[in-house]
Every structure is written in structure tokens, then in C-alpha cells.
Design a protein around this nucleic acid. Sequence first.
DNA 1: CGAAGCATTGAAGTGCGTCAACAATCGTGG
DNA 2: CCACGATTGTTGACGCACTTCAATGCTTCG
Lengths: 239, 239
Amino acid sequence: MITAHLHKLRQRTHVSADEEQAIRNSVAETRSVPAGRVMVRCGEPLSHSVMLLEGWMARVKDLEGGARQVTELHLPGDFVDLHGFTLKRLDHDVVALTDSTVGLVPHGRLREITERLPRLGRIYWFMTNVDAAITRELVLSLGQRSAISRMAHLFCEICRRLEIVGRGTEHGCDFPLTQRELSECLGLTVVHVNRTLQELRRRALVELENRQLTIRDRAGLEALAEFDPAYLYLDQHRL
Amino acid sequence: MITAHLHKLRQRTHVSADEEQAIRNSVAETRSVPAGRVMVRCGEPLSHSVMLLEGWMARVKDLEGGARQVTELHLPGDFVDLHGFTLKRLDHDVVALTDSTVGLVPHGRLREITERLPRLGRIYWFMTNVDAAITRELVLSLGQRSAISRMAHLFCEICRRLEIVGRGTEHGCDFPLTQRELSECLGLTVVHVNRTLQELRRRALVELENRQLTIRDRAGLEALAEFDPAYLYLDQHRL
DNA sequence: CGAAGCATTGAAGTGCGTCAACAATCGTGG
DNA sequence: CCACGATTGTTGACGCACTTCAATGCTTCG
């Protein structure tokens, strides 16, 4: 389902037939990946990038004591390591949070594409910059928002990003993370995640049950989170 | 002093004479900027990118209550908003922390460069990805490191980055931030920054006086911070 | 059906925040 | 060159958001 990826791009800019064809041809191989698998390992030399077609993955960084931080969640349609095209090795792991399907895109094809279709090159450069903007918003969350506001913000972001690829509505979306994984996204302990979730439910903002997120009061949730989707760059860009 | 910028690039990859010339020609104008000035404002349409030639700047994001988070510090040689070339507007402000001089690089010239010299285009794409890696490391700090480890990590990073551009040694560097600004980098209060600084001094790791950072025990500091410079991508890359 | 992971709860602790006061330094104008 | 207000740095007392520890029940799935 590379359509999710195309949806994601077309949400931000025009994609011509030529460009679409180049994108489709760039995927050399598709693979199934079980939940828990380390898809890309920190520091390893890379020769291709991984496009997530189905499922959720995460970029994670670990400290010695066992502490783990998720620096970005990835949803269908995302390149999980497009930055690997220029960096050639990652400063973090990429792990599958659910059973997933991925498409492998050899760096050689990316290079060929970016030289033959420079505009498509700029589109992908743009997309890595959007990833960086998402990471900056997470910095703001971790540095300045309270636990409940931080969690609210995450829900707003994920639901919005899933909407773009046809996997969520204003009323909710799938949300397959365990509370432990949520805690690794939010820089909190599992215990506090549990209590914060209860507080969000008590305030009738969201419910999270059976890996399903239900948004009861979107305006209230976005207000609590101070969520402004501008950082997702969802409007049309001339590139 | 565009040499800082060239040093920074050459630390990561070869830069040919042609490429160097293109870089030098890309700067249309240089300007002085006083401390405190907002150099680039969140959301404003951009037509050029800003290369920091001298001084310190910061990317900052604000919340409604007045809370402010620095998402990245910029040192001489950095592009403070190279991502603006593809994003066309920023999701954060860029403010001058000291009196600075900058070079303005019109996006038209960047575009021309990236099409005429695709490898230089990849170098700049690479550099925005290094910025993103720095931001990810900050996410790890804010989410998982204690106040003292976080501060130690910041000192390690800044000193290392300044070394690259000839403005620091293993024993220290200029460090012109106030404790308030430091607190905005670290997601702490000013009071706690003050106490944490004292603790670092008490442990004979660093001293910070008169806007000057002295590193007394680099190994100890890096151990406390769990600092591994791999995320700065300081080795030579084939691009 | 048993084991392992996951969710939930309570009690107690602590790292960092808040508030408030004061000292030191800096920049500016007289 | 000094006066003076503003910014920055420092300290103490106290509070709280979040952590830690520990126990219990609930799912899930070989």
C-alpha cells in the first residue's frame, strides 16, 4: 500500500505522474516484519531506506541504565530512515511496534531519482525536514509541557497524521502502543502514564481501550495540548 | 568569516574548489545583528537562509504561559535555517543570543547550486539531517537524563562543536549564555540550573565564569553525560 | 492451563519547581 | 566618574509532580 506514502506527499505538494512513477519504481522489495524486530540498527552502514507500508515503528535511543526514549513514531506512509540516505548510518535504532510491512528503497535509486528529478529530491529533503519539525515539537513537549499536556499532544499529533493517510478520523484512530511504549515516547514512568490516562478519561477528553483511541472532545484535547498543527506542514508547498 | 562554515563541512566531507566557490558566491549580503534580535520569525515566508558567521543564536519555541524551549543552539559556521529552504516558513523563532554577524543566502542561489552541483545539494541535505540528529539527542536528554547529566551533555556537545570551527579546545570554550538561557535549553528552572552548576563545580568537572566554560575533567564529564559524539557525524562521509 | 507480559493501585520518596529575598554585576545617563 | 535601575546570580524554605517500590489482577498466547 504505497498509496499511504503518496497521500502523505500529496498532502504537502503536487506530485506529477513522472514523479509518482519514479517513486513506485524505487521500491525494490517488500517485506513483512514482526512486532519487536529491530528494523534498522544504530551505527550500521546503510545501503537502502525503509518505507513503512503497514504498521507502526519507532526511532529509539537508549541509555546505559536501560532507559529508552522514542524520538519519533512512524506510521504507514512514512520513510523511517530517509535521513539514512545522506547520513549512511543512524544515531538511533528503528524498531517495529506492530507487525509491519515495509518497502526497501536502495540508496542508488534515491540518488538516481534526486539527480534526474531534482524537484522530487527537494520533496524528500522537505520530508526529512518535516520529521525534524516533529522532533522539535517533541523537544518542546518534553522540556515544557506537563505530563497530561504532553500526552494530549501526542494523541493530537498521531491522530492527525493518521487522518492524512486515511487511517483515522477526528474521533479517533488505532493506537496499538502499550503503556510502557507510551511512557518511552513521553519521558514518563509506566505508572504515571497509567494515571495520566485515567485523568484524561476522567476529564472526558479521550479514551484508550483495546488499542483503540477515542477522542471525546477534540477541541478540549487540543487546547490542553496547545496543539497547533502548523509544524506538520500540511498545506500545499511549491517545491 | 565563512571559513568556520567551510571547516564545519570539511570535517564531514570533501569540498571541491568548485563547490567552495559556489558556497562563497551564495552569500549575497552580510549583516550585523544585535543580541536579543529575532533573526527569523516563526511562520514568516522565507526567501533566503541565514548563515551564522560570528556569534551564537538559538531556535526557540514558546508556549502560551511564557515557557520557552530552545530546540537547538547555533554556533559560528552553522546555517540557522537551512531547513527553511524547503520548508519556506519555520515552526520556531531564531533569536540572536549574542551580537552576531550573518550571511544571507537567497533560496534562488541555493536552488541553482543544488541543481548545478547535486553533490553539494546532498551535502546540505546531510547537514540538515545532522541538525535533526542533534535535536534527537536533545530529546533523549530531556526525556531520560537527570538535570546534571543533561547539563554535562550540553557542555560536551557545545565544546566539541566549537572545536570543529576553531573556537574551543578540550579544556573549554566561550559560553556566553545566561543561566536563564541555559535553563531554556535544558528544560529546567533558573534556580535549579544554578544549583546544578554548583554541583558540577563541586565535583571538579567544569567551571563556568565570565561567560567562559572551563572543562576540568573531560573524561568525567563525558561519562556523567554518557556523551558519544557519533551523533554529530564528525567523520568523513562520501556524499 | 500456566507463564509472561500488561494494567492497575497504594504508599512513600525525591528531584526539581516555586516563592521570596538579597547580592552582584552591568549598562546607561547625568 | 558615579548613581541608579535593570538584569543576572545566589540562597533558603517549602511544595508538588512525578518516581519508586511493591503487590494484585488481568490478558494473551503458547
